[in-house]
Amino acid sequence: NRTTDLNPREMALALAKEIRAEQDDQDHDLAGYGASAISDLMAAAFKDPIVAPKMLRISFTVGGGKKVRQKYGDDMPKYCRDALRAIGFEEDRGACAVMECAGMYKYQHNTDTDLKAIHVFPRIDTAAAAAQAAAGEEEEDDEIKIGGMKLDELPPAHLCTIVSIETFGRLVAAQCPSFSQKRALLKAMKEMSAQFASFEERMTNMQALTPEEDELYNSAQNLPEKLSDLEKQLEGMIGGGHLTRAEMDNMIRDFSEKVLQVEEAITKAMEAGKPVTKMEAARKQLEEKIDHLKTAKPVVHRRKNDREILTLRKQLKELEKIESSKGMLPLEEIKKLNQKPVIIARLAELEEEGKGWFDDAIPEKDRVIQAPPAEKKAAASAGGG
């Protein structure tokens, strides 16, 4: 595993990268770090100026009272001092987060929390930060906007409305793999279609659209075809057995409610002496769909990262047990705890990668990742040679 088996140097370099990427004051715990790892961390994080618009305070917890003393070596403050001096930093007890204190650090024992810390005030390159900000503003000015929004800010329904029919198909496949997501997209695009109908009504009544509305309206492509295609995809998923158990239960409930509504409409029509043939056909069609779903076999969606996500969650639980244990911790256990931020970051990254559009439309039962089936052994192994 590329994230959970990091050696001390790799962990130090990963933390240094995180420090240099932030633009605000930070607090980090160095429990379990040794002299070599601290030297690598300080050099990678602070040898070169950090690109930021203002002075930063980077604090490292390096010791404390009896309750936490076992997590830190007595020499940790010395390791930090030595590492910072080696890259040209000076100790100043009066240092604070102002530009005049760039390249300084100070040691502090907070008697309220009974924790010891090294506060670093790095060298800052404000000129580079200003140049980056200016370049970003220029790029923003040059960006294409639709309906007053940049392309990467457009809601899914907006984006699907303006792209070609071919790109629409690829977006739906990539961003809405599940039935629930496709259904949510269809609902949003129908709302978009209704909004366009209101635009047309206003124009018919000689009422002007806003520049943003006009731009959005004129950028739309093949919206009726896209709606029809999406509806066909959903019907195909129902008929082809591509729904999860939770999605099937939801659809059975929805269809059952529609049956009641149709039956109520049939009763009123019969009382009024109106024909009910079409409504009866609609009821029969709904009942057939319900019967099909009740007997269909549900699918289980597997994502490529499920196995690693499960492994990381298991490791987090083990680390939480270590954290909650009472008494002095062995050094090896403390080193394991240092991996927790890395594991949490990787877990968040994997879970974000697995998200598409309308992730909140996915039933809660489908969000719980089950352990994938064990990989089958090779036929030769199974046969015992």
Rank of each mutant, 00 (worst) to 15 (best):
K17E: 13
R57F: 01
A246L: 06
Q175L: 06
M99G: 06
A52T: 02
D306K: 06
L350G: 08
E10W: 00
A282Q: 11
Q370E: 15
Q23L: 15
M270H: 10
I124N: 10
I19K: 06
T3E: 00
E264F: 00
S325E: 15
Q339Y: 03
E351H: 04
E280D: 00
S164L: 08
I50S: 03
A86N: 14
I38Q: 07
E375C: 08
F196G: 02
C160L: 05
K278H: 03
E212I: 00
S193N: 13
T126A: 13
M203I: 12
L171G: 02
K145I: 02
R9F: 07
V120P: 07
R57M: 05
S59A: 14
E349P: 08
I38W: 05
M248Q: 13
E351D: 02
K67R: 11
E264G: 10
A173C: 13
A220S: 08
L171Y: 07
K376P: 03
E213N: 11
A128T: 11
A361M: 12
I144H: 07
A133Q: 14
L151G: 04
V163P: 01
I252Q: 14
G273Q: 09
N1L: 12
A45I: 02
A345N: 15
A52R: 05
K340Y: 05
I322A: 02
I369N: 03
E333Q: 15
A117H: 11
I290A: 03
G354Q: 08
F168T: 03
P298M: 02
E153I: 07
I362N: 07
D92S: 11
K150N: 12
S228V: 04
K317Y: 10
T167F: 01
P372L: 06
V51C: 09
E191I: 00
